[in-house]
Nucleic acid binder design. Sequence first.
DNA 1: CTTAACCTACCTTCTGGTAGGATGGTCGTC
DNA 2: GACGACCATCCTACCAGAAGGTAGGTTAAG
Lengths: 199, 199
Amino acid sequence: MSNLSTTSDDILACARSLIVAGGYNGFSYADIADVVGIRKASIHHHFPSKVDLVRTLVARYREEAEVGMANLELQVSDPLEQLRFYAGYWEACIADASAPFCVCALLASQLPVLPEEVGLEVRAHFRSLSAWLTSVLERGARHGQLQLMSTPRAEAEAFMATVHGAMLSARAYGDPKIFSIVTGPLLQRLAPASLQIRS
Amino acid sequence: MSNLSTTSDDILACARSLIVAGGYNGFSYADIADVVGIRKASIHHHFPSKVDLVRTLVARYREEAEVGMANLELQVSDPLEQLRFYAGYWEACIADASAPFCVCALLASQLPVLPEEVGLEVRAHFRSLSAWLTSVLERGARHGQLQLMSTPRAEAEAFMATVHGAMLSARAYGDPKIFSIVTGPLLQRLAPASLQIRS
DNA sequence: CTTAACCTACCTTCTGGTAGGATGGTCGTC
DNA sequence: GACGACCATCCTACCAGAAGGTAGGTTAAG
C-alpha cells in the first residue's frame, strides 16, 4: 500500500537522531547523506536549506508530542498515572537508547545560536508541554489525586525541569538508571498522602 | 603588579561565553579572534588545538567550582543556607546574563559528539558536584536541618537535575525568573517541617 | 641570544548550497 | 494504446566561504 518509509522521512529520522546526539551544529548534510545512502545534493531537493530541514523536524516532533499528550488524556484518566506514563516513556527511550534526549530540550540549550525560525518552534514546545503538565497537575490537585506544594504552574515547571535535568544527568553519567533515580521520588512526592512512603 | 588580564585568559573567557551560548561546535577560532582582537593563528600559540583550549577551559571551570564549594563549606555552616547560596549564585548569573548556563551542563548535552578528553572533564564535574550536594544533604538530614524524602544521593541527583533543568527552561522561555520559580519550591521543600509553609 | 607573543600567508577539509542533466513515472490527449 | 508534456527524484560537478591548523617570519623583552 502506502510506502511507509519515504526518503524525506528517512532524512528527517536520521537528522533527528543526529540532533539528539550533538545539536544543530553537530551534524551536516554529508552526515545524513552517508546514513541514508543518498547524495548531499538530493537532500536539498527535499529540504532546500538546513533551516528548512530542522524547522520541519521540530514542527513534526512537536506535533507527535501533542498527539501523545492528547492520547494520554483519552486513555489514562488518573493524573498521577499520566505523569508516570510520561516519565516512563522517557525512561524507556533512554534505556534502549532509541531517543536518549528530547530534541527540543537539546536544541533549547543552544537557543542563542539557533536560527530564529527553529528557536520559535522549540519555545513553542516548551510552552505546550508546560501547559499540559499544568493542566494535569491542576486537575490532580483539585480532585485530591495529587499533592502539590505550590501552584500547579510552578509544579509543572519544576516537573519539566527535573525531567530535562534527569535526561542530562543520565547522559553525563552514561547511566540510564539515573533517570528513574531522579524521576521516581519526583512522582512519589506528588502522590496523595495516603500513598506516601516516608523514611 | 601582576597583569590580571593575560591574552590566554582573555581567550579562555571568550571561549567560555561562546560555549555557554552554543556549545562545542557553536564557535570557532575565528569567533574568538574577532572578540579578543587577535589573529586566528595567535590563538594556536596559546592553545595548539581546539581540544586543548576546551579541555583547559573546562578543567579551570571545574577548579573554580571546587574552590567555590570549599569556600561555601567554610563560610556557611547551615546546609539549607549552602543550597540557597548555590541556587542564588546561579540565579544572579542568569539574571544579569553574565553566565546564563553552566558550561559543563551545556557540554554534557552534547557528550556524544565531544572529544573524549573534554567529555572526561565534563563527567568529572558532574561527579564532584553531585558528591558535594550529597554530603550537604546527608549532613543536613543527620542534624535535622533538612527534610529528605529519599536517600541523600537520590536527593542530590534530583537537586542537581532540577537546577540544570531550570537553567534550560529560563533559556527556553527567555525569562530569568523561571529559574527561581523552579528552585524556590525546591529549597522550600527541603526546609525542616518547622519552617514549612503549606498551602 | 633566546624566547614568548604575535603576525602574514597558506593549506586541507568540510560546510551549506547551486546548476544542470539523467531517469522514470503519471498525466491528458489523440 | 501511443504520444508528448510534465514533474518528482536523484545524480555529477561545482562553488564560495568557513573550519582547524601549519610554516615561517617579525618584534620586543629578559
